[in-house]
């Protein structure tokens, strides 16, 4: 137990890297907006890092701050910036957003297969991998007791209760045909389409793709009744069944 009231922990967050190649503020804003309009859901309040290390010429503090402002105005959350450590601008200490250490990744040179007619000023890199998820369903017939943890790579079906202090996790959906009194975390690998279904909602915590709700909040919505939990526009919805 600590008296400090907090805990320091390491955390890894998937972010978007905005790598500036040539600085033209209007061009960047225009093309960036175009990208955002294609998948607005993905970019909404997405954490972003502005990287100026690939730029040939130096950037003035005025230009840099204007860029940050424009990017923020587009609905992105700038969490830091990066530049070539051997080429640090003189104003680097005066900027309020944190300067992040340079990426350690090697530059990967992949020959472009299709040349685009106009080379864009902005390259948006996402660090999201696509991978094959096995869709097996796990069925549990006995109560899941306090202190037990059950994880399913696909969907999880529990034909009994999940006790307080127990935890059920699934990459896919979770069905509990009994009282859900413990914690249920669906879509733990980021599937925002995952849902939780239960016969009696009495959970300590429900979570879908990392968006969670505690029992205090749940009690005001559905309690001791059948319910489903789903993610709508990044917020959890608890709906009676």
């Amino acid at each position: 137990m600590t008296d400090s009231g907090f805990r320091l922990k390491g955390s890894v967050v998937t972010t978007v890297l905005l790598e500036i190649q040539t600085f033209s503020l209007d061009g960047i804003v225009f093309h960036l907006k175009e990208k955002i309009d294609q998948v607005p859901h993905f970019f909404n309040q997405a954490p972003i890092i502005v990287d100026i290390s690939k730029m040939k010429r130096g950037v003035t503090v005025g230009e840099f701050e204007a860029l940050i402002q424009s990017v923020s105005a587009l609905g992105l959350g700038v969490i830091g910036w990066r530049c070539d450590p051997d080429n640090l601008p003189v104003w680097s200490a005066s900027v309020t957003i944190p300067l992040l250490p340079a990426s350690k990744t090697r530059p990967i040179n992949i020959a472009p297969t299709v040349k685009e007619e106009s080379s864009p000023d902005v390259v948006v890199k996402t660090v999201v991998e696509e991978r094959l998820v096995p869709q097996s369903t796990k069925v549990i017939t006995k109560p899941i007791r306090s202190g037990q943890q059950v994880y399913a790579e696909g969907d999880l079906i529990v034909l009994a209760q999940v006790s307080a202090g127990a935890e059920v996790l699934a990459d896919g959906n979770i069905h509990v045909y009994g009282a859900l009194r413990g914690r249920a975390l669906a879509g733990v690998k980021g599937d925002v389409e995952a849902r939780i279904f239960c016969k009696s909602m009495e959970a300590e915590l429900v979570s879908i793709a990392g968006n969670f709700m505690l029992s205090d909040a749940l009690q005001n919505i559905v309690w001791k009744d059948s319910a489903q939990v789903l993610l709508v526009d990044d917020s959890l919805e608890i709906v009676p069944l």
């Binding site: 109560p143 899941i144 007791r145 306090s146 202190g147 037990q148 006790s163 307080a164 202090g165 127990a166």
Partner: peptide, 13 residues
């Protein structure tokens, strides 16, 4: 009751 629930889990595993 919580501790009994815990021990039931251990009995089964």
């Amino acid at each position: 009751v919580r501790d009994s629930d815990r021990i039931l889990g251990i009995l089964q595993s």
